[in-house]
Design a protein around this nucleic acid. Sequence first.
DNA 1: CTGAAAGCGCTTACAG
DNA 2: CTGAAAGCGCTTACAG
Lengths: 338, 338
Amino acid sequence: MSLLQAKIKDVARVAGVSVTTVSRVLNGEKYVKDEMRRKVNKAIEQLGYAPSHIARSLVLKKTNLIGVIVPDLTSSFYSTILSSVEEAASSNGYNLLVCNIIEDIDKELKYLNVFTEMRVEGIIIMHEKINEDIRAQIHKTNIPVVFSSVKPMDQDFTSIIIDDYQAAYDATKYLIELGHDSIGFIGGDLRDVTSGQNRYSGYRNALADHSVKIVYENIRFGDYKVKSGYELMKELLNNKQRPGAVFVVSDDMAIGAMNCIWDHGLRIPEDISVMGFDGSQMTELVRPRLTSMEQPIHHMGKITMETLLKQISDPEAAKGDIILPHELVVRESCRKVP
Amino acid sequence: MSLLQAKIKDVARVAGVSVTTVSRVLNGEKYVKDEMRRKVNKAIEQLGYAPSHIARSLVLKKTNLIGVIVPDLTSSFYSTILSSVEEAASSNGYNLLVCNIIEDIDKELKYLNVFTEMRVEGIIIMHEKINEDIRAQIHKTNIPVVFSSVKPMDQDFTSIIIDDYQAAYDATKYLIELGHDSIGFIGGDLRDVTSGQNRYSGYRNALADHSVKIVYENIRFGDYKVKSGYELMKELLNNKQRPGAVFVVSDDMAIGAMNCIWDHGLRIPEDISVMGFDGSQMTELVRPRLTSMEQPIHHMGKITMETLLKQISDPEAAKGDIILPHELVVRESCRKVP
DNA sequence: CTGAAAGCGCTTACAG
DNA sequence: CTGAAAGCGCTTACAG
C-alpha cells in the first residue's frame, strides 16, 4: 500500500536474495531451492509487488499487445467482432489497444503510429477504406496486419471474410425462389470491394441468371448505417413501381428500411419483403424478425486473432485470405409470393 | 523497411550526432541548432525510425495507458460510453487497454492485475458488481479508479452517475400524470445500488406520493438484458390484472418487453405503455419509438475520462461523485389514458 | 548548443 | 542452485 511501487530490487532486499533469484521465481524457473522461493514469495506478498510489464517488454522485446482499429464502436456489427477478438486475445495472453476511428483518416494515421511506437505485435483493422497514406504507413512498419470482415484492394493484406459475391447471390436467389420478380437493392459503397462491389455483382448476376429484370430505379447505395437505409428506402417507396422485395446489404440499413416502410403505413412482409445482411443481434430484436444473410461474426474475431497470432509467431506463414461460410437465416421479414 | 527496428543509436550514427541530440529533437527541445535538427530528421526519415514508447515509458514513468473494464462490449449502452471514453482519451494523448468481462470475476481479477503490471495510469470500470476480491485488488494498487454509470457500495470510489432515484421517480411520475393507475415495474438486480435499489425506490416512492396502489404481482427484477425483459414481461401478461403501463429499468429490457407484448398480439401503447431507461440508440430504432428516461451516455464517457485524468494529475483531487442530469425523452411508447 | 554517462526495472548468459 | 554484470532503448542532469 506504499505510494512508490516496489521494484524487483526491493523484493530482493527484503527476501535477502539477489535480483536474479527473484526474477527466477517470478518466471517459474525450476532451479531454485524451495526455501528461497518461499522467502521471495513472502517478500512479494508483503510488498504487494507486481513486476513491471514495461521493463520486461523492453528486454524481452515482446509486448503482448495487439492494436485494433474499429470504424465505429457503437455499431453492433463491429462490437460483436471486437468482443470475439477480445476473447481470443485474452485467452492467448494478449491485450488489446483499441482505437475508434469515425472515418477520421488523421486519427487512424496517428493511431497506426502510436501502435508502432507501442511496439504492438499485430494489428487488426475492420474497415476497407484504406487510402495511400494508410497503406504506406502499414507497409512501412513491419507489423503483421489482418483485416477482419473486409478486404481492401491490395493483394498484400490478409483478410478474414466471407464470399460476399456468393452470399449476395444466394440471398437474391432466395428472394427469387420465393416468387419475387421485382427486387430492389440497397447496396454499400462501390469503392468498397467486398461489401460494395461484390455484393452488388452477386445481386445482379442472380437476377440475370434467373431472368429477372433489373430495374435500376430500384437500386441505391448507402453507408451501411440505419439512417441511410431509411432515406434510401424512402426513395424506393416513392418510385412509380415499388419493389415487392428489397435486399439490403447490412442489417443496420435493413432496419432503417423496415422503419421507413412502417412509417409509411406499409406492412412487412405483406407489402414488402426485406432481406438483411450481416447477422447482427438486431435481427432478432425487430418485429417482424429480420431474415438475413449472415456472416459468422461471433466466430470471425476469433479466427482473425488466431490468424494474426500465427503470422506473429511465423512471419513466413502463408498470407492468403480465409473465407468463412455465409448462412441464410430465415426469419419473418420475407414472404412467399402466392 | 528493415526487419530490425531502427533505434535511437542508429539514428545518431546516421546523422553523425549523439543520441542525446537525437532525443532532444525527438522531444522538440529548443536548444538544438537547425542544422543538427535537419540532419536528425533526415536520418529518422531515412531509417523509418519510430521511438520506442516502451523504453520511454520506463524512464519517464508514464505510460499514457488507461485500462477499461466493460461488462459487455456488444451492449449498445456500454459501447456508446466506451466510444465517448475513447474519444476523450485520444484527444488527451491517452490510449485504451480494453477488457471485456462477461460476468467473469476471474477474468476481471486477472485483468486488474495485468493493468497494474502494465502500469496503466488509471482505470475505468463500468459495472457495480464488485466483490471483496476485486475491491481488495483495487485498493492494493494505487491506481486511480473511476466508475462510469454505476456506483458500487464503497465510499472510496468515485462514480460518474445520474441520480437514479430521482430519475426513476420522475419516470414513474410521468406515467402517473398520463393517467395510469396500474404501473408495472421491471427492475434490475437489487444487489446493485444504483440501477437496482435506487431505481426501485424511486418507482415505489413516486407511486406512494401520488397514492397509486403498488401491486407487487406486477413487479419483477431482471438482468438488464433483452431476454430477461421478454421473459419477465411474459409473466406480467399472465397476471390476472395486467398493468396498463410498465416502467422498465433498461432500454434493452424494455425492448424485450415490447417484443413480448407484440408477440402476444397486443399493441403499444394502446394496450400497454412502455417506459425505458438509459437512452440507448435502440430507442429510435424500434417501432413504436421507445419513450425513455435517459442518461447522458454520449457525454458520460468524456466526463469519466476527464475526472480520471484530473485524479491522475492530482492524487489529492476531490474524490466525490459527479451527478449528471437525467432527461425524460418522450417518444411513442406511452399513451395518455383518456 | 552538444555529448558522455548514469539510470529506468527487468532478464539472461556466464561464472562459480 | 545462486549472483554480479551487461544490456534492452530511451531521457536527463551534469559538465563543457
